[in-house]
Amino acid sequence: MSAKIKSPWILHYNCGSCNGCDVEILACLGPKYDLERFGIINKGNPKQADIFVVTGPVTKRTRARLLRLYMQIPEPKVVVAVGTCACTGGPFRNMYNVENGVDRFIPVDVYIPGCTARPEAILKGIKKAIEIWKIKTKESIEVPVVIQKEFEETLSKMVLHGQTVDRRKIIHDLVNKYIKNNLEVTKCD
């Protein structure tokens, strides 16, 4: 565990942002701000990532992919919403193809406001995310916001019938069902 906390790898996903916050994240990884001194590497693979950095308002095409990526990151995981768009929807709030903020879908731990978020703010936010991540354990399984209600119903039903409960499996099944029923636009979303 102690070896692990020296290398929090990040996964960066852009779910509809204007690229502004994305270039600032990359500038953070560059030599001037040097996020890599915390042991951070930007990885494209969700299965190796620990911190999920999301930018942009969630559009209707990217929301299924956002949920899928979140489910694929192993616990413990921390979600950082970078930029006003990712926090609330920002200037794109209530446009017809926008879902207003990441926290409508997945639980967010750190919000970094700003249009665009400054590199100093991103540094501080990610430092904070690492602190939160240290406290979380493998058993701290969080439920995506969209299936919270169904999850509680299913859980209480199973407890009532005296069945053994595997929270992780229930969440995976419910998310897959939710994506299939509500979010899929094309086959490869």
Binding site: G56, R61, F92, M95
Partner: peptide, 17 residues
């Protein structure tokens, strides 16, 4: 090629809101 992932509807908002 599929390029439509980040469509937010800015043109529509410019004409309505």
């Amino acid at each position: 090629v599929d390029v439509g992932y980040v469509h937010r509807g800015i043109e529509k908002a410019c004409q309505t809101k």
